[in-house]
Simulated assay, not measured.
Amino acid sequence: MDLNYLYFRQQVSQFNADNAACEYSRSAHQQMADAYSARIATERRPMLEVRS
């Protein structure tokens, strides 16, 4: 998957979490941001292993 897309979606989700009007929305957006962060880490892992 395209890492640029994942980074963009993570940033948008984090922005939405930081600016949410209520706790429910904040939590939902934060969970999405966290899920994107986890996916980024998964996608980057093979790249980092090749460099080592």
Rank of each mutant, 00 (worst) to 15 (best):
D2E: 13
D2Y: 03
L3N: 05
L3W: 06
L3C: 09
L3M: 09
N4L: 12
N4I: 09
Y5R: 12
Y5M: 10
Y5W: 11
Y5E: 14
L6S: 00
Y7G: 01
Y7I: 11
Y7D: 08
R9S: 06
R9T: 10
R9P: 01
Q10H: 13
Q10D: 07
V12L: 12
S13C: 04
S13Y: 03
Q14C: 01
F15Q: 11
F15W: 14
F15K: 12
N16V: 01
A17L: 07
A17Q: 09
D18T: 08
N19A: 06
A20M: 02
A20L: 05
A20D: 06
A20Q: 05
A21R: 13
A21Q: 14
C22S: 15
C22I: 14
Y24E: 15
S25F: 11
R26C: 03
R26D: 03
S27W: 05
S27M: 08
S27C: 05
A28P: 00
A28K: 12
A28S: 10
H29Y: 15
H29M: 06
Q30F: 09
Q31D: 14
A33H: 10
A33W: 07
A33F: 09
D34F: 08
D34P: 05
D34G: 07
A35K: 12
A35Q: 14
A35V: 01
A35Y: 06
A35D: 12
Y36T: 04
Y36L: 05
S37C: 04
S37V: 05
A38C: 04
R39I: 05
R39Y: 08
R39S: 01
R39W: 08
I40L: 07
I40Q: 00
A41R: 10
T42H: 01
T42A: 06
E43H: 03
E43K: 04
E43G: 01
E43Q: 09
E43I: 06
R44H: 01
R44V: 01
R44I: 00
R45Y: 09
P46K: 03
P46L: 03
P46E: 01
P46D: 02
M47V: 02
M47G: 02
L48T: 05
L48W: 04
E49I: 01
E49W: 02
V50G: 00
R51D: 02
S52E: 07
